[in-house]
Simulated assay, not measured.
Amino acid sequence: MRTFSVNLKNLKGAGFLLSGALLLSACGGSGSEGAAANENLTGSIQIDGSSTVYPITEAVAEEFRREAPDVKVTVGVSGSGGGMKKFSRGEIDIVNASRSINADEAAAAEQNGISYVELPVAYDGLTVVVHPENDWANDITLAELKKIWEPGAQNTITRWNQIRPEWPDQEIHLYGPGVESGTYDYFTEAVVGKSHSSRGDYTASEDDNVLVQGVSSDPYALGFFGYAYYEENKNKLKAVPVDDQNDSNGQGAILPTLETVKDGSYAPLSRPLFIYVSSKAAARPEVVEFVNFYLDNAPELSEEVGYIQLPAERYQEQKDKFQEFANGVNQQAAGANQQ
């Protein structure tokens, strides 16, 4: 597996070479012709958003830089919400998102004349984690997570034995993504029942590495973040199996793994991860090349950094969808130029 932090380093892997046409065919190009085409590309691509999707996008960007060294690809981290704000204002070309765009963000993009295409790139399983020395929380139910995280728990549910009487009479220290995070939105909707609704007295950060550091250094901590950050740091964290007691199959507590996320048994904390590409960006050849490169390499690179690839046919569907979107953008531009 690749290692990553806020800045991925020393990434290795085989890049898939694409043809250099402005609008690629569904299958794309390969071999030396594709390499030559990418080497002739210039320009820049601005990406921002989810810290959860960041490892995949930065891994793809690192490989793309090898194939198109004259294209500057910048990947930032401001959370899904922060990235969507920049995206809807036209400040970035692509946004990483660990949730779907919401109504307010879509309205802001429309107001600014920005259309977009949503492209799922991988699956994730939100992972509940504790310190390795925690020998009591060997499983937890969704109802117990709600009891911990709901707004009414603030200044009320503060000790481990308030969750289960047999757990220690010790203060519980909570860590989680900030309110701009799509992971926060998804977790609160799945666990509390309402997106963007939780207690506020917890240590919050848009940088998942900060959360990892917090939980891994505190025996009485509990936190949550994307599966890749647990997988990368499992030597200093303990994942807690989650029991969805509303599950009619009665499977009991399930650990997030590549298998349980992929087969849907780790529900409802499994989710798709996305990139969104703006219409203005899709009119530029370097962006078209990059997005096709992304979808060709996402299956391998998503698993290298700890996420779960989509079925192969889903990636082809996304390539076809992006192709149609880019074609439409360029047809509109051609029509405008003729007027």
Results as ranks from 00 to 15, higher is better:
residue 1 M to V: 13
residue 6 V to E: 15
residue 8 L to N: 11
residue 9 K to D: 12
residue 10 N to S: 15
residue 10 N to C: 09
residue 26 A to I: 11
residue 26 A to H: 14
residue 27 C to G: 12
residue 32 S to L: 07
residue 33 E to L: 11
residue 33 E to N: 14
residue 36 A to I: 12
residue 38 N to G: 12
residue 41 L to K: 08
residue 57 T to Q: 08
residue 57 T to V: 12
residue 58 E to R: 09
residue 58 E to T: 13
residue 59 A to K: 08
residue 59 A to L: 09
residue 67 E to Q: 13
residue 74 T to G: 09
residue 80 S to C: 07
residue 90 G to F: 04
residue 96 N to I: 06
residue 101 I to C: 04
residue 112 N to W: 01
residue 114 I to Q: 06
residue 115 S to Y: 05
residue 115 S to C: 09
residue 117 V to Q: 06
residue 123 Y to S: 14
residue 125 G to S: 04
residue 127 T to D: 03
residue 130 V to R: 08
residue 130 V to G: 02
residue 134 N to P: 09
residue 139 D to Y: 10
residue 140 I to H: 02
residue 141 T to P: 12
residue 145 L to R: 01
residue 151 P to K: 02
residue 161 N to M: 00
residue 162 Q to G: 03
residue 164 R to T: 05
residue 171 E to I: 10
residue 171 E to C: 07
residue 172 I to L: 01
residue 173 H to Y: 01
residue 176 G to E: 02
residue 181 S to T: 05
residue 193 G to C: 00
residue 202 Y to W: 04
residue 210 V to I: 11
residue 215 V to N: 00
residue 215 V to P: 00
residue 218 D to L: 00
residue 219 P to M: 01
residue 219 P to V: 00
residue 224 F to E: 13
residue 228 A to M: 06
residue 229 Y to F: 14
residue 229 Y to R: 09
residue 232 E to L: 14
residue 238 K to G: 03
residue 240 V to Y: 06
residue 242 V to Y: 04
residue 244 D to M: 08
residue 247 D to A: 05
residue 247 D to C: 01
residue 249 N to P: 07
residue 249 N to C: 09
residue 254 I to C: 05
residue 260 T to D: 03
residue 261 V to Y: 04
residue 267 A to R: 07
residue 277 V to P: 01
residue 278 S to L: 00
residue 278 S to H: 04
residue 280 K to M: 08
residue 280 K to S: 11
residue 280 K to R: 08
residue 283 A to W: 02
residue 284 R to L: 07
residue 286 E to C: 02
residue 287 V to S: 02
residue 292 N to R: 06
residue 294 Y to L: 13
residue 298 A to K: 00
residue 300 E to M: 13
residue 301 L to A: 10
residue 303 E to T: 09
residue 303 E to R: 06
residue 304 E to T: 13
residue 304 E to Q: 15
residue 311 P to N: 10
residue 315 Y to G: 07
residue 316 Q to R: 11
residue 318 Q to S: 08
residue 320 D to Q: 14
residue 320 D to M: 08
residue 323 Q to R: 15
residue 325 F to H: 02
residue 334 A to C: 07
residue 337 N to Q: 15
residue 338 Q to W: 14
